[in-house]
Design a protein around this nucleic acid. Sequence first.
DNA 1: TCTCCTGCCACTTTTGAACTGT
DNA 2: AACAGTTCAAAAGTGGCAGGAG
Length: 503
Amino acid sequence: MYVHEDYPYPLNPLTKSYGCYPQGQMNSGCQASCSEAELMSLPVHASLQGRELWEKFNSVGTEMLITKTGRRMFPSCRVTVMGLNPKVKYVLMMDMVPFDNNKYKWNGDLWEVSGKSDPHLPNRFFIHPDSPALGERWMQYPISFHKLKLTNNTLNSKGLVVLHSMHKYQPRLHIVQAPDPCGGHSGGYLRFTFPEAAFIAVTSYQNQEITKLKIDNNPFAKGFRDNGLSRKRFRDKDMSQRSVSGQQPNRTQNQQAIQLDEDEDEQVSSSVESTGAVRLPDIKTTSVSVSNPFLSAFKCGSAGLACSQEGLDQSISHQSQYILNKNRDSRRPDDNLQYTCASLPEALSSRIPMPQQQPCHSPDIQPPGVHQIYSTQANLQQPLRLPPKLSRMQLPESVFRSLDTNPKPLSDIFNTIRARMVAKDSQINPLHDQTASGSNREAKAMIFPAVQDCGAAFCAEQYTGLTTEWPAFNGNTEQSSNEPKSVAFSQLGEYSGERFAGK
DNA sequence: TCTCCTGCCACTTTTGAACTGT
DNA sequence: AACAGTTCAAAAGTGGCAGGAG
């Protein structure tokens, strides 16, 4: 077995979601028809952008506000991905995983541990609104997850990431390769954790240094800069504009006032910078001036690769991350935080027989010789084999109610993504649903294929006791094109938090 | 009393529909 | 008619703060 059965129970119950792979299905036709996923053989790199800003926050102790309606992160996660196949479609997702087992409290000067953490809440993935998209699109420019929202409202159904207040989390990026039904590739799966972006979730800011950093760097908080002077300045200017022109200020006048404000802010900025704050323009400049990610990738040389099984166990996770930290290439010209890693959904990897590969949880526990293999080729791991698809139309209403109030299996999300893909494609080419043949076969292969959704069905079985039949996966694209789309389509907003139907 | 949470406020930025010009 | 650019109101995103709950 790839992972020993009595391996410590993972801290992150996300594994339970992944664990929705039905026992006994591993030897089904799905597995037989799937070959090694291409994604697993690629030297994929993921880099967190805005290193200076993140480190600035990290040095103080990053806090992220969580509200009932959802609050965006600042700094937001901007990631550069390299090494993907430009012509293959991928789905990018992000979630938050507990940083440790502790609950924290602010004692006025610093954060201190106040006890054991509460049970981790069901994972919600934020699916990047552009998903699925070709690798070339993901690698073209930094991928922003600025629309990701955090909440403490466990009842939300708007795709918000649910966190516990006073707990520490770190962002985790998921890259899911679309299976290629024509080429015989199954979907691969990679994920990257960014410990530098770890933060404590709070309902109101505790550390005034963090508040200051947020105000200084977040453009939305401009009104709070300079102890609120800018507010007063704006109002005064606004009033003077009105009195001079003798009319209601229109947009142009407001913009002029804002521009004046910005000009003054530029002057103020020197003092801001002198205090060590990083201004937003710095980030913008970085993102614009940073050259083609491809070039950056080549410039950074061959950064050490590490195999991580993070998520299996928190201590293991940190060991892996330590490896990743050590492997960060200091010669890298830009300011990115760069990692190269590869790992599998734990529950899946625990059931996939891998006779020629051994786990490499950390260098200390690796069998002799294994580390060398993985350190030079990190992604030689088993692909995530997606189970056969189950039509949601065949499930009773109770199943969907159950799924709505319980953790969503990854395959469920895949199905949702696929629905989006189909919807997008239908808009571009209304005739696309027709049978793919001949010259359009290749184009058909580029479409995100049917997500094999027996994972969702397996969960449904667990929740409802309903036994379902598993349609054999044979790579038939027509099967996918005939799938009912409306059901999964309606689920989409819940994950992405993004309207897409009208786009 | 203390800690944590909620709702509202004033302000800024973003978004997208409506409008205008070519 | 089609497209591109501009305008502008509404929506969304900020931290502060007062007050409530436990």
